[in-house]
Design a protein around this nucleic acid. Structure first.
Lengths: 370, 370
DNA sequence: GTTTTTTTTGCATGCGTATGCAATTTCTCG
DNA sequence: CGAGAAATTGCATACGCATGCAAAAAAAAC
């Protein structure tokens, strides 16, 4: 067998001289026999140009391969049409989904996305400096928060901030979340109705509002039925930590018979530990419920009962909130809470209650819950 | 129970007047009692400024909250320090990973990332127009190809193009791939050595070079042992299509006892179908091997044997290739092929051969293969 | 202290576009 | 056909910064 070309770099063909001289509006103007202003106007929707002139300009532009320089435009209009998106990590499978939908949503409105990610461990402040230099029209934060000072700086600079899936106390940040509290509560009701007695909660990022609300809702729902003592561990949105957390709970004297895990990303890991390390049957021995309803939750191997994060409406809301503020050039601070519903599958024992079918997904809708 | 605030938007606090007047170098200069040039130089590493002056400037800048305007700088330097990244979809779990590592790599070198994604169905050409208007210094394409015309346009504009995980015939695009052909070949050898007789291949995007090479390598490896007739179906990188493909194969008169699926993303779906729809045991009834070695492949539920896509070195190579071209302002067209190795787990029957442990992962390294 | 060398500074200009304004053209209508 | 209204066009300027060049200041050499 030939050794193969593995690891080798095989250059083919020499470098091409690169003119690098981008075509300017000036040149197009000369070619079309008009002024530079005319060229500008031909590319500005709604500007005052005679149709015939516009045609001439567009033709010349096409011939020369002209493309307006967005940077130069930004300098004048003071609008970059770029949104800075900060997403510290993408492990949780909802984030790629969010990213795709977000990109599509922004694109549709003529905005681009400057993405900052891949700094899970490092701090996000240096990143912030970079974002701001590019004069983004808005800042969208997911899976991160901004220190209060930085939020102030944004406000001072007139850059609206929208937090996704997180809330903040800062008076001038907007946010979009799912109804975490209600979700936690519904899960509690569901599990209680399913006849469980020993509950546990595995937290995500303990400091995040999202985690706090889910936990609070869960505890609230449980205590309404007299369950106030529950197992607790922290997974930190990290698979390693999550497994450790799960092991701790399952190895206890009185292991839980129902575990609510703060996000599917972790819940799947918990299920793996339960089954393959402790030989537990799900849901016969232990019920596991997650939050987010990621794609894999629906796979037969997992069939994870999970509270659906309404990604699409959340993204829409976030984009709307952003546009609203950009267009009105004023910082608004609205908090949008999008309702979700419990996708009932096989990882938790079913209560007798009202499980309905909606678009092929079972959801649970007890009276007065919704 | 209260109806809850679901779906409601609750404004808090009025809008804040937004000055929106960003601080300019001019203002900093006045405050520091120097010229605007001095300010510029204070922020340019290696520029000619007295330390004392620089201090004064930085102090004034800090007081005023000055941040250099990257757009204005771009206009002069003709360098945006932005790389356009086009990633049509993020379903395949390696892409979020790539994105994170890429962002980190670019960030480290002072580059930002303008991301275009979420247009799986739509064509990527309109997106292209947008990217180019922002005068990106380079273009990185993953999970997409560029039409030949567009490649030409990039070259004409002096914008280097690096394809990630895809190759192209175009003479002036660089590319970074794993050694797909060798990977396919190794998998064939591995499965043959494991005693399988009836092989099948499930393709990803049939037109992509990556898929072609994996398939070619697989067929090549098999035919070397006299197996030239194999099952074939197309998953199109789509879970729905993949399931259909798998059903077709497993329902055949002579179902395969070894399936190589073009990517883990699809392989996991195939495994689900095998187990839960056909009641097949993996690997007793059928062996399944994937490519990419995504995170989930290692979960006990799947324990998917898979050829590891060397994401980190690939990203490094891509970034290097990009930087090299940007810094030399010349389009190079290098093709970098990064070697990988087979991560041996439980989804395929083991051959007697030389399975070694490396960093906790079993790999298979028959003589002369590497 | 003077001359030479080196470092630092400010001036002026230009990057590519958008836009207010005035000049010009075209259109409308009597 | 002419006056007025409306539409179109070009001119000039500004956006915020980097940079070549010459002037000024500081340092070094004598």
């Amino acid at each position: 067998m030939p050794a193969g070309a593995s690891g080798l770099s095989r250059p083919e063909g020499g470098p091409a001289a690169t003119a690098r001289h981008a075509v300017t509006a000036e040149e197009v103007a000369r070619r079309a026999g008009v002024s530079q202003s005319a060229v500008s106007r031909a590319f500005t929707p709604g500007a005052s140009v005679a149709p015939r002139t516009r045609e001439k300009v567009l033709a010349a532009a096409r011939e020369l391969g002209y493309r307006p320089n967005a940077m130069a435009r930004t300098l004048i209009t003071n609008r970059s049409r770029i949104i800075g998106v900060v997403m510290a990590y993408l492990d949780n499978m909802i984030y790629p989904d969010v990213l795709e939908k977000l990109a599509a949503g922004l694109q549709r409105r003529g905005y681009q996305m400057l993405l900052f990610t891949g700094f899970k461990d490092r701090h996000s402040d240096p990143v912030f400096e970079q974002v701001m230099q590019y004069r983004v029209d808005g800042l969208l934060l997911a899976s991160t928060t901004l220190s209060s000072d930085l939020s102030d700086e944004c406000t001072a600079a007139g850059v609206p901030v929208v937090m996704f899936n997180r809330m903040t106390e800062h008076p001038l940040c907007s946010s979009v979340t799912s109804d975490n509290r209600n979700g936690g509560r519904q899960i509690a009701e569901f599990l209680v109705a399913g006849g469980h007695r020993r509950f546990a909660y595995i937290a995500g990022a303990a400091i995040s509002s999202t985690n706090r609300d889910r936990e609070a809702g869960f505890r609230e729902g449980l205590s309404r039925h007299g369950f106030s003592q529950i197992g607790y561990a922290e997974g930190n949105l990290e698979l390693g930590d999550t497994r450790t957390a799960a092991r701790g709970l399952f190895a206890a004297d009185e292991p839980p018979d129902a575990v609510f895990v703060g996000s599917d990303h972790m819940a799947l890991a918990v299920m793996e530990v339960a089954r393959h390390e402790f030989g537990l049957r799900v849901p016969e021995d232990v019920s596991i419920v997650g939050y987010d309803d990621v794609g894999a939750a629906d796979w037969p191997s997992f069939s994870l009962t999970s509270f659906s994060l309404p990604v699409e409406p959340m993204v829409d809301a976030a984009v709307e909130l952003m546009m609203e503020q950009i267009e009105s050039s004023s910082i608004l601070s609205h908090h949008r809470v999008v309702p979700g519903c419990l996708a009932v599958r096989g990882s938790a024992r079913l209560p007798g209650g009202p499980v309905r079918d909606r678009d092929g997904t079972l959801i649970w809708a007890p009276g007065g819950m919704e």
